[in-house]
Each structure stands twice: as structure tokens, then as C-alpha cells.
Design a protein around this nucleic acid. Structure first.
Length: 387
DNA sequence: CTACGACCTGT
DNA sequence: CAGGTCGTA
């Protein structure tokens, strides 16, 4: 039976490309709620499906290693002895290698120089600078639009651990099986037509999708019936707001989900998805005060917070946001502690600030009198009513 | 535009 | 209530 590849058993099964950890941290990037499809299958080894194939990724200081499993079972292919055929195969193999590297570069958007961006963000924002020293290498994946859209329809009123299970069952139920590695079978993400099938809603409800089952099936059907198979991909080539509004015509897609899809699969680096968590960050760490003391996140609040952060961080604000979002996840809190043991001074400063912020926040509702960077800037920035 | 309840399920 | 969205006031 085929097994998950591990680097320690030899580099001959692996390809590599130069990539510093300051540019990419697999552990943070693959487990911070962007994609729900990667699992740590061995220490520091991440296995998942990308472009219809199963990959395992791992990294050392300056190198990103990747292994692509061959779903065509060529691992056991026989030597034919025909040298010309062998040569042809090797040629084809090399072509594929180039293609695979290119796919990986595309998926991680390695053309975007993250270190440079971190420097710029840190110069503009002292709070980011503090976080940035620990949470390096958090970058945006460039996901396949269909997978991204339908995964994020599952995220409404939901938390990461449950979403992960749901997406897994979605692929199991409706996606094509690819490879089996050590007891686990990997499935491709379902096609639009598989998702649009009339039986899907009931099927997914049985799998615990709740009311989202209907959203998934109806969105797929609407895309197929009204927009066409190339529509989603095509949104990569239109401006952010246009793509955002187009996505919002789909059932189950509100402002937050639309922003996630824009940012994570449609090349809209300026999109800032605002959930309650990001709202907390805006209030706690940036003294963001909205005009009306909102109880929940309205569309207007989405826009205002988006404008505020774009104004602060610039055209890659969505990327910046994901670093801070990642740094706030419970599962990564240990990283802060380990780091701050080495730097006790920073630790004390941080804790002090945080408890201060927390205190004032709990009293804030009655007296929102804080001075803020935002209200002035955002009001001038928001000339139009729409984003 | 804002407010509010309903909606699935799990902790 | 949780990393929302929809329908209705």
C-alpha cells in the first residue's frame, strides 16, 4: 500500500525550490483557515489536494520540498527496455516537473515578496510590527475559485474545526477519489455539476451541513444555469467591487464570504474579510470606533473597517489582515509564549497593553470616547456610499 | 441603513 | 454563542 512521503527517508522522491521561511511558513499558512484541505501527516509534512493531485509539502530553512503522488500508478511501471520510449518518458517527466514547480509557485504566489511587504506594513503600523516578528511567512494562497467559494459558503456561523470536517465530507461524498495513502483516501474537490445535482441538498443535510446544504446546491446550480462554467475564473479579471457584487448574487454568499473568495482565490489583495473576530481586532488593537455603536456587523461596518485597514496598510491589506488573524487564533498562542520567554521585556509590555485594552473595551459600550485614527480618515476616504 | 429572529450543529 | 446570511420590519 502506498505511503505518505517523508523527507527523512531520502530526498530522491522529492523536488525542491528555494524559499526562505520568512517568505513562507507552511504550518501557519496552511492551518489558519484559508484552506481546509491540508493535514499535517507527519511532523512538518503537509498533505493535501491541489489541482486534482495529491501533494505532500515540507520545508527546511531555505528550501520548500514537494512530492506529487502519481494517481496513474506509475510508481510500479515496468522498464520496457525500449530506450527511445524511456527517453520520451523522461522528457515528459521533466516537463511535468517544471509544471509542478510552476503550480506550486502559483498556489503560494511566490512572486509576491512577503518580506518587503512585512517591512512596509511594520513601518506604517507599530502594532503589526510587534506581531510580525513572531508570525513570519503568513501569506495568501491562490486557491481554485470553485473550491474556495464552496468551502467558504460552509463557514457561515461556524468554526474552523467543524468546517474542516464538513469540507472533508463534501469531497468524500461528491469528489473523485485520487490516491490512497496509509489508510486515508484523498478526493478531489467536487465539480460544479456534481454540486448542482438535485440530490445534493438532502445528501449534505444528512452529512450535517444544516441550512448550508441548500446554499451549496443552489449556488452551484445558479452558476451553471445563469453564468456558465468559466464565470468564477473570469472574476479574476474584473475589479474587486465588481467581483464582490457578482458573488453576492449567490445564495449563502454575504459580504464576508464574498470578501474571502475575492481575497483567497480571485486575486483581490485589497479585500478585507470582516468577521466578528476581525472586528474585535479592529476595536482592541486599533481603537476602531464606528459611528453607531453596532451590536452586529452590518454591511456598512464591513465597508468602514475595510476602508480603515486599506488606508492603513495599503493595497495588500487583505494579506496584512490574515497575518493578524492568524496571530489571534487560539491554536497559535503558544508561539507568542515561546517567543516572549526569550524576550521578557516585550512580553510585559504586551500583556499590559492587552489587559488595558480588554478592560476599556468592556466599559466601552457606554462611553465610546476614545480618540481614534480611523473616524477622521475613513470619513474623508469614504466619498461614495458604496465601497 | 439598522434591528432582529430564524437557521443547523457542536461545545 | 460560534470566524454569517436571509427575510422582514
Amino acid at each position: 500500500m502506498a505511503k505518505h512521503a517523508v523527507l527523512s527517508s531520502g530526498t530522491h522522491l522529492w523536488r525542491s525550490l528555494a524559499c526562505a521561511k520568512s517568505e513562507l511558513r507552511l504550518d501557519l499558512t496552511l492551518a489558519c483557515g484559508q484552506s481546509f484541505r491540508w493535514r499535517e501527516t507527519a511532523e512538518g509534512h503537509w498533505t493535501g489536494v491541489m489541482r486534482g493531485r495529491v501533494w505532500t509539502l515540507t520545508q527546511t530553512d531555505d528550501t520548500l520540498w514537494y512530492h506529487v503522488y502519481d494517481e496513474r500508478k506509475c510508481g510500479t511501471r515496468k522498464r520496457t527496455g525500449d530506450s527511445s520510449e524511456q527517453k520520451l518518458k523522461e522528457f515528459v517527466k521533466e516537463e511535468e516537473d517544471g509544471e509542478e514547480e510552476e503550480q506550486l509557485r502559483d498556489y503560494f504566489q511566490l512572486n509576491v515578496k512577503l518580506e518587503t511587504l512585512y517591512t512596509e506594513w511594520g513601518a506604517a503600523d507599530p502594532h503589526f510590527k510587534k506581531i510580525a516578528n513572531i508570525f513570519t511567512g503568513v501569506r495568501l494562497l491562490r486557491q481554485e475559485p470553485t473550491e474556495c467559494l464552496f468551502s467558504f459558503i460552509c463557514t457561515s456561523n461556524n468554526h474552523i474545526s467543524r468546517i474542516t470536517g464538513m469540507v472533508e465530507r463534501l469531497c468524500q461524498a461528491l469528489g473523485a477519489p485520487l490516491d490512497q495513502l496509509d489508510r486515508t483516501t484523498y478526493y478531489d474537490f467536487p465539480s460544479l455539476s456534481a454540486l448542482a445535482d438535485g440530490s445534493v441538498e438532502t445528501r449534505l443535510r444528512d452529512l450535517g451541513f444544516g441550512y448550508r446544504a441548500q446554499f451549496l446546491q443552489q449556488s452551484a446550480k445558479k452558476i451553471l444555469d445563469s453564468y456558465g462554467t468559466q464565470w468564477l475564473e473570469g472574476l479574476r479579471n474584473v475589479p474587486y467591487l465588481e467581483a464582490h457584487d457578482a458573488l453576492r448574487t449567490l445564495p449563502g454568499v454575504g459580504t464576508k464570504v464574498a470578501d474571502c473568495v475575492c481575497l483567497m482565490s480571485l486575486d483581490k489583495a485589497e479585500a478585507v474579510p470582516v468577521d466578528t473576530h476581525v472586528w474585535q481586532i479592529a476595536k482592541r488593537d486599533y481603537q476602531f470606533a464606528s459611528s453607531g455603536r453596532q451590536k452586529s456587523i452590518t454591511d456598512k461596518l464591513h465597508r468602514d473597517i475595510g476602508h480603515f485597514f486599506r488606508n492603513l496598510w495599503g493595497p495588500y491589506a487583505g494579506w496584512t489582515q490574515s497575518v493578524l488573524f492568524c496571530a489571534d487564533l487560539k491554536k497559535f498562542q503558544q508561539l507568542k509564549e515561546t517567543q516572549s520567554v526569550e524576550q521578557p521585556r516585550n512580553q510585559e509590555e504586551r500583556v499590559e497593553e492587552e489587559s488595558d485594552a480588554a478592560k476599556s473595551e468592556s466599559k466601552e459600550r457606554s462611553k465610546p470616547k476614545k480618540s481614534n485614527l480611523c473616524s477622521e480618515k475613513t470619513t474623508t476616504y469614504v466619498k461614495k456610499r458604496r465601497m
